[in-house]
Amino acid sequence: MMAVTEFQKIGIGLTGFGIFFVLFGVLLYFDSVLLAFGNILFLTGLVFIIGPRRTAHFFFQRQKFRGSLFFLGGVSLVLLRWPIIGMLVECYGFVLLFRSFFPMVFGFMFSIINIPFLNVLFPNISGSQKSLV
Rank of each mutant, 00 (worst) to 15 (best):
M1F: 08
M1H: 07
M1Q: 06
M2H: 07
V4D: 00
V4P: 01
Q8F: 05
I10D: 02
I10E: 02
G11Q: 01
G13E: 00
L14R: 01
T15F: 08
F17C: 03
F17G: 04
G18E: 00
G18L: 00
I19T: 07
I19S: 04
F21D: 02
L23M: 11
F24I: 12
L28C: 05
Y29R: 10
D31M: 06
S32E: 05
V33Q: 05
L34M: 08
L35R: 01
F37S: 11
N39T: 13
L41A: 11
L41E: 04
T44K: 03
G45M: 02
G45L: 04
G45P: 01
L46V: 11
V47I: 13
I49Q: 04
I50Y: 02
G51Y: 00
P52L: 07
P52H: 00
P52K: 00
R54I: 12
R54N: 12
A56D: 02
A56H: 03
H57C: 10
F59H: 01
F59S: 03
Q61D: 13
Q61S: 15
Q61E: 14
Q61C: 09
Q61Y: 08
Q63M: 11
Q63N: 14
Q63W: 10
K64T: 15
K64E: 08
K64W: 07
F65G: 12
F65T: 15
S68N: 09
F70S: 04
F71P: 03
F71H: 04
L72G: 09
G73W: 09
G74D: 05
G74R: 05
R81S: 13
W82R: 13
I85C: 03
I85W: 03
G86L: 03
M87Y: 04
M87C: 03
M87T: 10
L88I: 14
V89L: 06
C91A: 10
V95N: 04
V95D: 03
L96K: 07
L97T: 08
F98R: 03
S100Y: 06
S100D: 14
F101G: 02
V105H: 04
V105N: 05
F106A: 04
F106I: 11
G107A: 07
G107E: 08
M109H: 09
F110R: 15
S111Y: 04
I112Y: 10
I113N: 06
I115G: 05
I115H: 10
P116A: 07
P116I: 09
F117Q: 15
F117W: 14
L118T: 14
N124P: 13
I125C: 09
G127Q: 00
Q129I: 14
